[in-house]
C-alpha cells in the first residue's frame, strides 16, 4: 500500500532521515520504534507531506506521494494523527471532527462519518460541544484519532498516541488500535511504549539516528535481546 524507497529529509541544513526504505501492506499494522530524536516524527511528516522529501521515492497505492501537493495527500487515503494531538483548542469537539472531513468527498459523507466516530468514541458524543482544549489528555487523543478517521482513510498514521497518558488510558489506546484494524484500516504507528506496541502490530522498524537499523516481525523483535535491552529496559 505504502512504499518508501531511499527517502531523505531534513530541516534547513540538518538532515534528519537518511535513505529510509519502508513498506506497509494493506491491512497490516506496522510500528516504527526508536530513541528520542531518531526521526520518527520526521518520517510521519514526510509521508503526509508536511515536510518535503529531499530524495527517494514514496508511493501510496501506486500514486507518487512526492509529486502530490501536501493538501492532496489526505485525498489519497492517508490520515495523520500528529504528535501532541494538535487539536484546534478553541473549537468544539464537533468542529474539530468537522475539520477532519474537510475534503469534499468526506464533507459529502459528514453525518455518516460523524456517527461512525461517535459510535467508536461515545465519550466524544457526550463532549461534542466542549472546547477541545479543555478535554483531558485521553479525550484529546480520542478526538485527534476521531478527527483523522473523519476523512475515511485507508492508512492511519499515529505518532505516539500514548504519550503523556495514564497507564489505564494507554491500554485503551492500544485496544483502540486493534479495533481500528478490525475496521479494515492499515496502521503505521510510532511508539515509545515498545513492549505494548509490539503486541498490537504485525511488523516493526527500528529507526536510529535517521536510519532504519532493523526490521522484522513483531514477535521476532520482541524476542530479540538487543531490542529488549535497549527499548524495553529488560
Amino acid at each position: 500500500m505504502l512504499t518508501l524507497s531511499n527517502v531523505d529529509a531534513g530541516y534547513g541544513t540538518f538532515q534528519a532521515l537518511f535513505d529510509c526504505t519502508l513498506e506497509v501492506n494493506a491491512g497490516e499494522a506496522v510500528a516504527v520504534i526508536g530513541p528520542n530524536g531518531a526521526g520518527k516524527t520526521t518520517l510521519m511528516r514526510v509521508i503526509s507531506g508536511l515536510i518535503p522529501a529531499r530524495g527517494g521515492r514514496m508511493d501510496m497505492e501506486g500514486r507518487d506521494l512526492v509529486a502530490t501537493p501536501p493538501h492532496r495527500i489526505v485525498d489519497l487515503g492517508i490520515a495523520h494523527v500528529p504528535e501532541n494531538r494538535r487539536l484546534f483548542p478553541r473549537m468544539s469537539v464537533e468542529d474539530n471532527l468537522r475539520m477532519g472531513a474537510f475534503v469534499p468527498s468526506a464533507r459529502a459523507a459528514f453525518s455518516r462519518r460523524l456517527e461512525f466516530v461517535y459510535d467508536l468514541f461515545p465519550r466524544m458524543k457526550e463532549r461534542r460541544h466542549q472546547l477541545a482544549g479543555t478535554l483531558s489528555g485521553g479525550e484529546q487523543q480520542m478526538c485527534a484519532i476521531g478527527r483523522a478517521l473523519m476523512s475515511e482513510p485507508k492508512l492511519l498514521l499515529l505518532d505516539e498516541p500514548s504519550a503523556g497518558l495514564a497507564p489505564v488510558i494507554v491500554q485503551r489506546i492500544f485496544e483502540l488500535v486493534r479495533v481500528i484494524r478490525e475496521q479494515g484500516l492499515t496502521v503505521l504507528i510510532v511508539e515509545q511504549n515498545v513492549q505494548q506496541v509490539l503486541r498490537v502490530v504485525d511488523r516493526a522498524y527500528v529507526l536510529e539516528a535517521g536510519s532504519i537499523r532493523m526490521s522484522g516481525a513483531a514477535e521476532e523483535l520482541a524476542a530479540s535481546d538487543e531490542i529488549r535491552r535497549l527499548y524495553m529496559g529488560l
Binding site: S48, G49, L50, P70, H71, R72, I73, V74, D75, A79, H80, P82, R86, F88, P89, R90, M91, M99, G100, F102, V103, A106, R147, S151
Partner: peptide, 11 residues
C-alpha cells in the same frame, strides 16, 4: 489556531 494542521485536513 493551527495553520499546519489544516494542511493535514486537506485544506
Amino acid at each position: 489556531q493551527d495553520r499546519e494542521i489544516m494542511t493535514l485536513m486537506g485544506a
